[in-house]
């Protein structure tokens, strides 16, 4: 598959931005600067990058508790994301959502969602809107979820709905091998989750989710099918998270070192660098300049977030409804 120079640069920028955002976000979390639980996605840069490379702001994605990578790949601003994680008024959701609820409707991002599997039908609904309005060719719904969500009933309901209504949906299952601490080999009743797609009358494709080029190619075919009105596709993107389930989780308690090493050797960024420099598609100098600019962006994002004000306490009562005639205040 031919990939333009601009697209390659975007891919590397996006993957490196995700990697460094997660590492930076973790540093800030351990410093006590974030206000709650965070779920890092470093290691899993290829799936959101390879999929979102085909999308525009008119396409919609649903995301998960491990959603920073999806946000970044969909074009969200890392300053507003960092500020959100630090609970600031300038955050993407004004500090009311936090790490697990970052959304940007202007970018076609339906929100990170902390109920495992719950965002899947939202992407189906976005695709229903596209079909209803006859704009499938420019607006598809992509649902990102993990191997844990593959056991949720709502995924199966959503797959059936998308198939019987022939909706432009891509089910992008990021199988990182673990639902919290529980391995997929224990909790998933199939060797490949994608094999379940057959039962719902849609193509199911197993993809190396550590290789952004493979993800890009498979997602390209799935999204083209959706835009052509040919219905949903299920992609199983086999990937790996480098950190634990959440910031304070030590994965060494339930993963073996040789397994972690195996995936680090297949690191999405390192392999991208090797491949593009080997094939002379991008220079080492260009790669470094991208990395340098991201390093600066992360420093700026942290500074922006730390210097941002906390939300006014009045924010507690706003935006529960568009309008509501009873008081929102609690009883005291």
């Amino acid at each position: 598959m031919e990939i333009s120079k601009e697209k390659l640069e975007w891919m590397y920028t996006t993957m490196y931005r995700i990697r460094r955002f997660e590492e930076t976000m973790l540093e800030q979390t351990f410093k006590g600067n974030s206000m709650g639980v965070t779920h890092p996605s470093d290691g899993q840069e290829a799936p959101p990058t390879g999929v979102c490379a085909h999308l525009t702001d008119k396409d919609w994605i649903g995301s998960t508790h491990r959603g920073h990578g999806h946000c970044i790949a969909k074009g969200l601003d890392t300053h507003a994301m960092m500020a959100e994680i630090m609970g600031r008024a300038t955050g993407q959701c004004g500090g009311k959502g936090g790490s697990m609820h970052i959304a940007d409707f202007s970018k076609g991002m339906l929100g990170a969602n902390a109920i495992v599997g719950a965002s899947i039908p939202l992407a189906v609904g976005a695709a229903l809107t596209a079909k209803y309005k006859g704009i499938e060719n420019e607006s598809v719904g992509v649902s990102f979820f993990g191997d844990g969500a593959s056991s949720q009933g709502v995924l199966h309901e959503s797959m059936n709905l998308a198939s019987v209504w022939k909706l432009p949906v891509i089910f992008a299952c990021e199988n990182n091998g673990y639902a919290e601490a529980t391995p997929a080999w224990y909790s998933v009743s199939a060797e490949d989750i994608a094999s379940r797609a057959d039962g719902y009358g849609m193509p199911g494709v197993v993809v190396d989710g550590m290789d952004v080029f493979e993800v890009y190619e498979a997602a390209g075919e799935a999204i083209a099918r959706a835009r052509a009105g040919e219905g949903p596709t299920f992609l199983e993107l086999k990937t790996y998270r480098y950190h634990g389930h959440f910031h304070a989780d030590d994965p060494k308690k339930y993963r073996k070192p040789d397994e972690e090493e195996h995936y680090h050797e297949r690191d999405a960024l390192k392999n991208f660098e090797k491949r593009v420099t080997g094939q002379k598609l991008m220079s080492a100098k260009k790669l470094k300049s991208i990395r340098d600019s991201i390093e600066q962006e992360m420093l700026d994002a942290v500074e922006f977030a730390l210097e941002s004000p906390m939300p006014d306490v009045e924010a507690l009562y706003s935006d529960v409804y568009v309008n509501y005639s009873n008081p929102i205040f609690g009883l005291r």
């Binding site: 919609w60 039908p121 939202l122 609904g125 229903l128 809107t129 709905l161």
Partner: peptide, 21 residues
């Protein structure tokens, strides 16, 4: 007409409402 999938189609309705319907 929807299949008997209340979680699925209520969720899809939320998605449709979030995207303009």
């Amino acid at each position: 007409d929807a299949p008997i999938s209340e979680a699925g189609f209520v969720g899809a309705a939320v998605g449709a409402a979030l995207t303009g319907l």
